[in-house]
Amino acid sequence: MLTAALAIAGREFRLAVRQGFDSLLAVVFFVLACVLFPFGVGPEPAVLARIAPGIVWVAALLATLLSLDRLFQTDYDDGTLELLALAPLPLTAVVAAKVAAHWMMTAGPLLIAAPLLALLLGLAADAFPALLATLALGTPALSVIGAIGAALVLGARRAGVLLALLILPLYIPVLIFGVAAVDAAAFGLTVRPHLMLLAGLSLAAAVIGPPTTAAAIRLALR
């Protein structure tokens, strides 16, 4: 089963590499969305530094959301998904492999771009590690919850907008704890409880998410 899961994840990576720049579009969007804020609120460093964690996190949320439409949609359209559902391993494992690959390919670039953006927005240097830690701990929950939504909207009209409506409210807890941790670090407070909560969210999502996603996919394949 492990070899099969690795084969599925490996194929996702290979596809991402072949599609080249396509896979980096989400991180380009992430950077662009963050860069828009100084134009919106003015270039005053104190204001930007104060809202930097929120900006980076909201942009990360939206970038993840944008990357989700390819998670199952192309596989659904070309019939790969039904063959994967017929593979002799649980669909939950297939989902877990695909979501893990998706997380590595979206969160990885976000983690690399985030410090750069924090620098542009003038985030306090003390808060940099916290920002990276929250992104690393929180983005798994984003990918897993997003996968549920991506599976639910398979075959729907206007799937993209619908996905945003389904998923963004569910992202609120991750956003709150993520930003709270970075804020705490910027004010010199303890970060640990926030990080623990984020990790807890990601763990809970990882337990509940894949079986739910698998159920939604089975429904889409009927």
Binding site: R11, L15, R18, T74, D78, G79, T80, E82, L86
Partner: peptide, 15 residues
């Protein structure tokens, strides 16, 4: 025990 070939080809054009 089964192999299923449907109308769709389950191919990735870039591979």
């Amino acid at each position: 025990r089964l192999r299923f070939v449907a109308h769709t080809d389950a191919m990735k054009p870039t591979l």
